[in-house]
Design a binder for these strands. Sequence first.
DNA 1: TCATTAAATTGTT
DNA 2: AACAATTTAATGA
Length: 224
Amino acid sequence: MRSLDDLLTTSPWTQELSAEQMQRVRSAIIVRDLQPGCYACHKGDPANVWIGVVDGLVKMVAISAAGKSATFAALPANSWFGEGSVLKREARKYDVIALRESRVALMPEATFFWLLDTSIPFNRFILTQLNERLGQFMGAFEHDRLLEPEARVARALANMLHPQLYPGHERCIELSQDELGHLVGASRQRISQALQVLEKAGMIKVEYRMIEILDIDGLRGFGA
DNA sequence: TCATTAAATTGTT
DNA sequence: AACAATTTAATGA
């Protein structure tokens, strides 16, 4: 299991922080371990922390009155989220649930706003984060209901790797096909077929509980 | 370290 | 949805 320091060193906004700033950030953050199915935060909770995924995988879901749940985004290790609600000092808009055993980092809003006031790289990170999320959201709206399952899977995979632009060469997603099925809203056997199509197209490599992305641009444009 | 078994995951119909 | 095949994890010699 990865540690808080692993998350911080791979997060681009920490690059230009001084040792003291780093220490202040590190000591303010609270780390929490989550079992599969556990909530990182509930819809309606006051958004007083910014959340980073240290390890594992969490999903953002909205629950309708009828009890149907729709997954908006999957957040793998190294992603940060919740800045929107923290910035607006509003309640959380969605439930966030661990898809498997995960570890999250909770940064208090005081630290969050302090970084906004002091660090330009942090501001830049938040800015691009908000901008990209808007793009993803509109793209999802535009296509998800219309596309073939293959294309929906392709987009879901591309979106999952998107948050980690800088960090690294982490091109692998550890995710079972069953979990991916819940994510995309398709049956497991349909996912299995879709993955094989994408693999034959040379865009991904499928292994046991693991998907390696070979051509992220190809995935984004799949079916378009 | 290697072999056996159980559990989880994946491919196919 | 059900079944077979494959991979991983666990156990014990």
